[in-house]
Design a protein around this nucleic acid. Structure first.
Lengths: 231, 231
DNA sequence: CGCGGCTTTGATGTTCATCAAGTAAAGTGG
DNA sequence: CCACTTTACTTGATGAACATCAAAGCCGCG
């Protein structure tokens, strides 16, 4: 179950994150008081789409997915978020309810900060406002960029693109454990589970990757990258 | 050719736009001095991807497309922007160069405002900062939402979705002139020109729409909407 | 032990891009 | 003004890409 942690100070954690660099010390103290730090197990649901936005969500550690139900009740994964980013950026300032569900893909630690406090600090601290803007802009831009890329590729290209994404952007390693089931993998790049498996096997036969269950190793990064760009 | 206009005051124009409601009068005056208002003809290129960001771009009147070249040199349309929105929101605060090209789809009037001035006002005026955040969040969210929707549908659903988008969100009318060629239509929703035509003809045969060149009229909104949601 | 969920492979039919060919409209140069 | 090119649009035919169905193996869990 989700477990509320005896929190470490924001000052220590926040200094590591780009966003909070611009905060004054008393603002950080105020954050300390108003935040909750919660740990989630792999697979645990963090937020449900449609629920009211009360807090600003920061992913301190771990990996989470943003998803949404389609009209025909299928799950659709919008994006996978790396640690040290703010989730829900996309809706927090323009909606009253979360537009996406949030689920932990690995054991993850999240900070929940009262949304009114964040808004207050934004209004009072111009540098902080600029940083939030930069971050929001960057996060949105990445998501859009990835979406456009994925849409315009054929299946082989999509799989390759996603493998390289996990390797380069998330794990910084050619060897990693895929945090998604094959089904989720398909939901993230709009293809059937069967074809996810088929193409992964194809890549294995072609010597591009090695697979052992959810453990994946990229053997030929250059070729895979070519497939990702032109497939 | 693009024509620099004898500009009307920001105060008048801006008061109509949500974003500028929160500005003080002297800030508006400052904007007046720092902005350029330019008119573009249909088809004219406004910005090229890769060029340096010096200005904040506001679409006062008209319609523009955001596009990008794929690695194999094809054009890809990211989004179509309605008037009274800020373009380039997606990159202005996180990059030095524009990530997308901008082209006028109709005769359009755009305002260019020195980016440093905007950043200065954001830092000094908290309410303005909050408004920019809300807008940026909303614009990004819409684009992501549309992209995800389009990706997850089959061709019939995509075409229907886009027709309804133009009818409801852009023209507020069941009758409108499609501002895109069939080819561009395809570039926007990732499908071949031929299939755009084929499916439009199909919709015509089924009595869902009426087509006369680029003039389109939606005859059966409900059915088209069903196709859009479940196709 | 048996059930359900995840994974895998093969077979089948649908959806879609591509190729080819033709028409219409619109600009271009003499 | 007319031949000439170019560009957008349209339809049909073909094959490739892909989803779906079916069946079987695997593993964790009650």
């Amino acid at each position: 179950m989700a477990e509320v942690l005896d929190t470490s100070r924001c000052a220590e954690c926040a200094f590591k994150s780009l966003l909070f660099e611009k905060l004054e010390f008393d603002e950080l103290l105020e954050l300390d008081g108003a935040k909750k730090e919660v740990k989630f197990e792999k697979g645990e649901k963090i937020l449900k789409e449609g629920s009211e936005i009360k807090e600003f969500v920061y992913l301190k550690k771990g990996l989470v997915k943003l998803s949404k139900k389609t009209p025909n009740k299928k799950d659709h994964i919008i994006s996978v978020s790396k640690p040290k980013t703010f989730i829900g950026f996309l809706t927090v300032f323009s909606h009253d309810t979360y537009q996406y569900s949030l689920t932990a893909l690995e054991e993850s630690t999240l900070c929940f900060i009262d949304i009114h406090l964040i808004k207050k600090i934004i209004q009072e601290n111009g540098l902080f406002a600029m940083d939030v803007l930069a971050k929001i802009s960057q996060v949105s831009d990445e998501i859009i960029h990835r979406r456009v890329n994925i849409c315009s590729k054929q299946l082989r290209g999509r799989i390759a693109y996603l493998l390289i994404f996990f390797s380069k952007d998330i794990y910084h390693n050619t060897k990693f454990e895929l945090p998604l089931t094959r089904k989720e993998f398909g939901e993230l790049i709009d293809m059937s589970t069967e074809n996810v498996i088929r193409i992964l096997s194809e890549f294995r036969r072609d010597g591009l990757i090695k697979i052992d269950g959810s453990k994946i190793e990229i053997l030929n990064f250059e070729s895979l990258d070519k497939v990702s760009r032109f497939g």
